[in-house]
Each structure stands twice: as structure tokens, then as C-alpha cells.
């Protein structure tokens, strides 16, 4: 069951990732990216990260991607026109090389990783309470620095979006 769910959502993630890269229209790319994020959230749930799965959907899909979609709509960005025309042979060669490259990476990871027990759903649960406790004890300084970072980004975005520039 765990393996089946993993395979289904991994396939969705990879399919949406490919669609992100090959779609010509920015809105289609953005929706594919949302698909990737949603399936990754399911995989996080499987790995026992329930808080991080929900944060993924709230922050990424619910805030960042809404901003992207908003900007794409605002600029009314049209479909991208290809700047160069690759020959058919080059295209097929590229696909073959890409698959070979990914296979090589998979092989290296598979070989380099020591044999460990597999992931079973429910094998580990990082609850929201655990994450919160760790965040406000061991990681308090990075957390505070992050808030400063967000403040800087806020000011930067407002300055950039002023009318005078």
C-alpha cells in the first residue's frame, strides 16, 4: 500500500515536473508546479511529516503560487515563442541522453546509499508539537533571523513596486 501510494504520487510529480518544463504557457507551467507541490505534500505525509505537508500546501500552493498566478494574470503573459528550432535528431538524442543521465543518477544513489530499512507509513511521526518544540528551543536563533529576512523582503518588495522606479 505504501509502495503503491508512493508510485502513484511520484509518477504524478514527475509528470507535472516534465509538464512544467515543456509547456509553453506560463499558467500551464504554474498549474503543473502546483501539481508537483500537492503530490510532494502527500509524500511528506507518508514520511511522517504532517506539519510540513500542511505547511507545504498553505505556504507554497496557497501563497507563493497564488502570487505567481496573480502576476502572470496581471502581466497577461502570453505563450512563449521558441527562439531556436532544434532538428528532430537533436531532440530525440536529447531525450535519450536525459533518460540515460537520470538512470545514472538513480544508479549512483542506489549504490551509494547503505542498505536501510524501507519507509513504512506510520514508522515515524513528526507531529506539529515536536516541530514546534524543536523550533523554539534548538532553532530559536535561525527562526528569529528568518523573521528579519522576511522583513527585509517585505521592504524590498514595497520599494521595488513603487511607481517611481
Amino acid at each position: 500500500m505504501t509502495a503503491l501510494i508512493f508510485l502513484i504520487f511520484a509518477c504524478i510529480a514527475v509528470f507535472c515536473g516534465i509538464s512544467l518544463v515543456v509547456q509553453t504557457h506560463p499558467i500551464a507551467s504554474a498549474l503543473s508546479l502546483i501539481g508537483v507541490m500537492g503530490s510532494l505534500a502527500i509524500l511528506y505525509l507518508q514520511l511522517g511529516g504532517e506539519f510540513i505537508a500542511m505547511a507545504q500546501i498553505i505556504v507554497y500552493a496557497g501563497a507563493i503560487m497564488v502570487l505567481f498566478v496573480f502576476v502572470i494574470m496581471l502581466l497577461n503573459a502570453g505563450a512563449e515563442t521558441p527562439t531556436f528550432q532544434a532538428s528532430t535528431f537533436v531532440k530525440y538524442l536529447g531525450i535519450v541522453l536525459l533518460v540515460a543521465f537520470l538512470g545514472l543518477i538513480s544508479f549512483i544513489i542506489q549504490a551509494a546509499l547503505p542498505k536501510t530499512e524501507g519507509v513504512v507509513f506510520g514508522g515515524f511521526q513528526g507531529t506539529a508539537a515536536d516541530v514546534g518544540r524543536k523550533l523554539f528551543t534548538s532553532y530559536l536563533l535561525p527562526f528569529e533571523v528568518t523573521s528579519v529576512l522576511i522583513l527585509i523582503a517585505l521592504v524590498g518588495a514595497i520599494v521595488l513596486a513603487r511607481k517611481e522606479i
Partner: peptide, 13 residues
């Protein structure tokens, strides 16, 4: 266990 977060997540999407 995170039902409330789930509702917020769905409403944000």
C-alpha cells in the same frame, strides 16, 4: 491530528 491546519490549507488553495 492536524484537522484544523487541513481546513486552512484547503481554503487557501
Amino acid at each position: 491530528r492536524i484537522g484544523i491546519l487541513f481546513v486552512i490549507a484547503v481554503s487557501s488553495v
